[in-house]
């Protein structure tokens, strides 16, 4: 039989990696005894459990068939992460108006059907609405407009 279960193989390896990381970074936490469990007791148990389960899933991938991994496009991922980071960078330094507009502009580019004029209009409207809703109506402690570089 041809190997066709990349999805499970990678998922299993991901679990093994997380389990191993939990064990590695948790190696200095005192394990204690069953009566007096230390901070390392549960992380240790769960870490090994995850390594075990992950290995099982990885090995099983060679035995049972799977479904192909759905297509991955990088553009939506990159643009959405960029939008989030832009918000984190600007919301305290430039204020909510700029941050919200930046999210709309960068986020819109995640879609292949983005249209420039449309983006500008939506960015302006959304930024204004966000300021009205969150700052004036809900009184969240954010600045609509500021300069903090």
């Amino acid at each position: 039989m041809r190997f066709n279960n990349l999805q499970d193989l990678l998922a299993g390896l991901l679990f093994v990696a997380f389990g191993a990381a939990a064990l590695w970074f948790g190696q200095n936490y005192a394990i204690g005894s069953a009566t007096r469990m230390g901070p390392g007791y549960l992380p240790n148990v769960l870490g090994w459990l995850l390594v075990g389960l992950g290995s099982f899933i990885t090995l099983r991938a060679f035995v049972i068939g799977g479904v192909p991994i759905p297509r991955i496009h990088l553009r939506p991922q990159i643009m959405i992460i960029a939008a989030l980071l832009a918000f984190a960078l600007t919301v305290e330094r430039l204020g909510l108006l700029a941050a919200a507009a930046a999210v709309v502009v960068l986020g819109s580019l995640a879609s292949r059907e983005a249209r420039p004029l449309e983006i500008i209009v939506i960015a302006a409207l959304t930024a204004a609405a966000a300021v009205g809703l969150f700052i004036y109506l809900l009184g969240q402690p954010m600045q609509p407009w500021t300069w903090g570089f």
């Binding site: 980071l85 984190a88 919301v91 919200a100 959304t126 969150f134 954010m142």
Partner: peptide, 29 residues
């Protein structure tokens, strides 16, 4: 294509204001 950027803004502001910390938005990413 018009809806999701607006949802994106809501997600950012909503997450940020739970603790008024930009690290929350980085965690979101």
């Amino acid at each position: 294509r018009i809806l999701f950027p607006i949802i994106l803004v809501l997600c950012c502001v909503g997450t940020y204001s739970t603790g008024n910390a930009t690290t929350l938005v980085v965690m979101l990413a």
